[in-house]
Write a protein that binds this DNA or RNA. Structure first.
Lengths: 136, 136
DNA sequence: TTGACAATACGAAAGCCTTCGTATATCTTT
DNA sequence: AAAGATATACGAAGGCTTTCGTATTGTCAA
C-alpha cells in the first residue's frame, strides 16, 4: 500500500547517491561531495534537499544546527522502480532485451559473469529464489 | 562532428517507438496509435514531431500533403545511449548490478534465459570482440 | 465554385526542475 | 560583546517540456 515512491529527478538522484554512500550527513557534506564534479552553489543543494524532505524522499533531524539528512527510501527500491520504468519506456517492457544489451555493451569480468550464471541457475531451479540478497 | 545523439524526452520516445514499430508514417497514424492509451490532442502530437524534426531526431518528407515522418536514429542506438546514461545515474556505473536486478525482477522464460546463457558463452569465449570502448 | 474536412504552422500558456540571491538566525573566536 | 563565518528559509527567475487554441492552407466532392 505504501505508495511512497515518486520518481526522483536527476539532481535528486545525485543527492541520494551521496546519502546512500556515506550515510546520514549534513547539507554541507553532500554539497562538498557533489561540488567535486559539478559547479553549483551551496544554496542550490540546500534547496533541493529541502524539497526532497517535503516530498518525503529524505528525512531530516533538525535538533542540531546543521540538520542531518538521511535517505528514506532504500537504494534498491529506487533502482527497482526506475528500472521498471526505464524498461517500459525505452525497451517496450522487454527486460530481457535490456539485459542482453547491457551485457553486450559492458565487457564483464569472468567473476561477474559467474554471478549472473549463478543467478540464472537459481531462477531456473527455484522459480523464484531470492532468499538471500546477494551483495552488491 | 556528428553529435546526433540528444536524449529524447519521454514524449519524444513514445513517438519514436511508434515510428520504429510501424516504420515511416504520418502524424495522424502516430497520433491514432498513441491516442489509444493516452488522451492528447492531435496538434500536440504534431507539434512534438515538428520539434523532433528540428532537433534531427526524425526526418520528414513534405512532398505529400500529409508529411511522412521517419526516425533518423536507430532504436538500438538510442537504447544504448539511454542505457549508458541510466546505468551511470541510477546504478553508479555498474551495469552488472543492473543486469542482476533486471533478471531478479523479471521472471524470464527458459528460452530467454537460454539466450542469455548463449550470450554469456559467446562473451566468455570470444574474449572481447568489440572492446573499443574506452572507459571514462 | 463553394462548403466541409483535414493538415500544417505558430504562438503562447502551464507545469516542473534547477539555480541563485538575499534575509535571518546561530555559532565561534577574539 | 562584536565581527565574521556558517546555517536555514524563502522567493523568484530561467529553461525546458508538454499542451492546446487558432489561423492558414490544401483537398475533395457535389
Amino acid at each position: 500500500m505504501g505508495k511512497d515512491h515518486q520518481k526522483p529527478t536527476d539532481a535528486e538522484l545525485e543527492i541520494l547517491q551521496v546519502l546512500w554512500q556515506t550515510g546520514p550527513c549534513s547539507v554541507r557534506q553532500v554539497h562538498d561531495t557533489l561540488a567535486g564534479g559539478r559547479d553549483v552553489g551551496y544554496t542550490t543543494t540546500l534547496k533541493l534537499m529541502q524539497i526532497m524532505a517535503e516530498k518525503g524522499l529524505v528525512r531530516r533531524n533538525t535538533d542540531t544546527r546543521s540538520h542531518i539528512y538521511e535517505a528514506v527510501v532504500a537504494e534498491q527500491d529506487i533502482q527497482q522502480h526506475l528500472l521498471r520504468r526505464f524498461v517500459d519506456t525505452a525497451f517496450r517492457g522487454s527486460a530481457m532485451n535490456l539485459v542482453m544489451q547491457a551485457l553486450g555493451q559492458h565487457n564483464a569480468g569472468s567473476e561477474e559473469l559467474d554471478e549472473i550464471k549463478a543467478l540464472i541457475q537459481r531462477i531456473e531451479q527455484g522459480g523464484n529464489a531470492d532468499s538471500d540478497n546477494p551483495p552488491t
